[in-house]
Amino acid sequence: MIFWKEDSPTVLTRPPYLLFDIGGTKIRMAVSLDGKNLENPVVVGTPRDFNQGMQVFAETAKKIIGQNTINFVTGGMAGSMDGSKAQIFNSPHLPDWSGKNIKKAIGEAIRAPVLVENDAAMVGLGEAMFGAGKGFRIVVYITLSTGVNGSRIIDGKLDRSSYGFEIGHQIINFDAGVTGGDWGRGELEDYVSGAAINQRFGKLPEEIEDESVWENVTKYLAYGIHNVVVYWSPEVIVLGGGVSKRISLERLLNYSDEILTIFPSVPILKKATLGEMGGLYGALFYIQNFGLN
């Protein structure tokens, strides 16, 4: 019998797996008993308090695991991680989670080895391998949810980085960053994220019917698309997250075409197809192939 301990080496193991996706608003979780399919998927709210969050995680996991013994746990976490992918460096929409060792906490709760990646990276991997990005060699995924972030997947592998990617924090309005005010630091997230839209209009994005609001959000997003294209040069850009549902791809393509002049054309723009399960599918692929990523 193999006993888990915090410093146990990370080795490829056989299912059952516990898969998770911890976002700024929701925790998604499932098990894979055969290493190929998702079973017992569940979605619960993400507590703002870290300790309460870990309690909810453990209780939810216990319900869906049942009598099975989990051999490995992997998933995505909202926010930037330290170099070891163990400690949350900064989670802007879950500030109490920042500075916490999420890998250790989950490992102690489940008693199994754990791998953690950024949540947008996991969803992007899922969409690249099983969803809207399937069949493309260079895929960029952008999530427009509580916050904004993205990832690049090349030939089925997550692009390497020191601390992950945080594309929502690219500055698109320098003047706002200097003067502050309603537009925060002038970052892309300050203009197109669900949290920013809620703060500005006092409504959840799905409650806003004014098309002029969405026209402006689309214009701002086009500048983010431009920057992603010139930095990452993808074949396809996949948009996911709740806010993306209100974005017209036709209008976004038109604005992006007007802005982008250095390349012949804007990459293909698509909407994500895996819905709430994108990060879990990405985690499943990751655990099967993490030695390659």
Rank of each mutant, 00 (worst) to 15 (best):
N90Y: 09
Y223D: 11
K36Q: 15
S8F: 03
G150F: 00
P267F: 14
G124W: 00
V73L: 05
L249Q: 15
V140S: 08
N289I: 04
F285Q: 14
I225N: 08
I287V: 15
E39T: 14
N37R: 04
E211K: 10
K134P: 01
G291S: 14
G76W: 12
F20S: 06
F263T: 12
G24D: 09
Y281V: 11
E59H: 07
T218W: 04
V229K: 00
Q87W: 07
V139F: 09
P267S: 15
A121W: 00
I153W: 08
V43C: 04
A196W: 11
Y223R: 11
R200W: 10
G75Q: 07
G45Q: 01
H169K: 02
I22D: 02
R28S: 06
I65Q: 01
V44M: 02
A283G: 15
D175T: 09
G156A: 07
I22H: 03
A61P: 00
I287Q: 14
H93A: 06
Y255P: 00
F290I: 04
E166Q: 12
S212H: 10
E209T: 14
E166T: 06
R200N: 07
G275E: 05
D49I: 13
G35I: 12
G184L: 03
F3D: 08
A120W: 01
I268L: 14
R152W: 00
P15I: 12
P95W: 02
V42F: 06
L260C: 13
G177W: 12
I88P: 13
K157S: 03
S80L: 09
S256N: 02
F290Y: 15
N118L: 00
E108D: 13
F263I: 13
L284G: 07
Y231T: 15
K36R: 14
E250W: 04
R137Y: 10
P47E: 06
T143E: 06
I64W: 01
V213A: 04
M1N: 10
R111P: 04
Q170C: 10
G75W: 03
V114I: 11
G291R: 15
S265Q: 06
E6L: 11
I172P: 05
G131R: 00
G75M: 06
L274E: 04
N289L: 13
G124I: 12
H226T: 05
S265G: 07
V114C: 03
M1H: 13
D175I: 12
G53D: 02
H93S: 08
M81V: 02
L94P: 06
G150N: 06
N198E: 13
K134T: 06
V243E: 07
L252M: 15
I153G: 09
E276D: 13
A78L: 10
G23L: 06
A58W: 10
T273K: 03
I167W: 06
V217Y: 04
Y141H: 07
R185L: 03
G133Y: 08
A283L: 15
S161R: 09
K36H: 15
A112Y: 08
P92W: 04
E59G: 06
M29Y: 01
A58I: 08
